[in-house]
Amino acid sequence: MSRSANTALYSRNFLLLICAVVCMSIGYATLLPVLPLWAVRGGASEFVGGTMSGLFMATTVLAQLGTPWLSRKLGYRLTLALGCLLLGAPAPLFGFITDAEPMLVLSAIRGIGFGLTTVTGSALVAELLPRHELGRGSGLQGVAVTLPQLVGLPAGVWLAENWSYPGVFWLTGIVPVLGCVPALLLPRLSGQLTPPGGGRPIAQLRALLGPWLAAFAVGLGYGAVVTFVPMSISTSVLVLLAVGSAMLLGRWASGVVADRMLAPGQQLPAGVLLGAAGLAGIALAIAASSGWLAVLAGALFGLGYGVIQNDALVVMFHRVPPYRYGLASANWNVAIDGGYGLGAVLIGAIVTGPGFVAAFGVSAGLLLAVLLPAVVVARRVRRTAAPERDDSRDVALDRA
């Protein structure tokens, strides 16, 4: 039987997970750049628009921290379904309000739902697949997240401006709720955080620090891009399309490379450099009023973002035992989404002062600051991978 026929990547359960993730991501990504525009259109400042994104991610992070515990109580499938419901159900209500306070409340509720879906979605990749397929599995799950972003980020802005803001709100409410169906068809699985004989959670958290920093810094840059590119660049729809396309390519390619190299973590330095160059390029594009430079810079950032997303998650899974997959997933999601939320608020504060050029320049500098931890992760992976390759070769020679 062929290798492709034996792979768990095409199993019923993994495909059900992908369907649920796609529904969730459509609701998340399509509304992401629209809500700040809706708030500003209603008379709020750019800072309030950024705060909406920041509050969404703040409650996302809080939910992510509690998801491993909740998944042990309810199981992964019920937790995933609950997340889809909380993410989608409040969305149509935005069409009936323009005041900042109720919009912030709805954003907070949706953030809780998004937090539940992100952690369970990532953890289920490791639960449903063998370790040697985690790179491609994470990459495929990343495609399921990123492809709706590729379409949804620019389409959300275009549909809102040229069709109807309330129509976008209804669309992004219905689709995530539909994701409850494949989620509930998944098998009964629940996260186990502690083994029967105990564990070493502090040491395992320390092992996740390097990839966590890279994921957090690139998430911060993504928060700046999604929230403020539509406000500062005339070709914002094309820029967001470039970011999503390159993110899709970067995440899938990173997964394939990780499985073939058997050394997840080695791609982090390249991802940091690509992402920082992209953010710096966006700053230059705004200063020069160059829409096409902004598109190219967005592609560079998206490529780096995709590489870091996938490689950081896979190396986290490889650094913990199976009973800590929920912990690794929660930490990775907190890094990505916490960085996004802080980026929306922090960069929003800079925008109201020095302006957009300085804001994206700071984003690039913050990402570049984690290059050293990324290099340390890659070097440690090389040192541990080399003996494994040598042992395999020795075994092959002995058998020969």
Rank of each mutant, 00 (worst) to 15 (best):
V320G: 02
G219W: 09
A386I: 03
L296F: 14
I174P: 02
G326A: 14
A270Y: 05
P211W: 10
W292V: 12
S363I: 10
P373W: 05
T172R: 09
G42V: 01
V157P: 02
G302H: 06
V243D: 03
G156D: 03
I336G: 01
T59F: 12
Y10L: 08
G49W: 14
A214P: 03
G66V: 02
P102M: 13
T118C: 04
M103W: 09
W292H: 09
G167E: 06
G275N: 09
S232P: 00
L209R: 11
A29N: 12
T117S: 15
V395K: 05
T146Q: 11
E133H: 08
P92I: 11
A81W: 07
I26D: 02
R260C: 02
A287Y: 04
S53K: 05
M231G: 01
L74F: 13
A396S: 11
A335I: 12
A207M: 08
L205P: 07
L268N: 10
F356S: 14
A328W: 03
C19Y: 04
T67K: 02
Y165N: 01
A283H: 06
Q267D: 06
L262Y: 04
S254P: 08
A108V: 07
G115D: 00
L372W: 15
N162L: 03
E133T: 07
F114V: 01
V151K: 03
A253L: 15
M261T: 14
T118Q: 11
L303G: 04
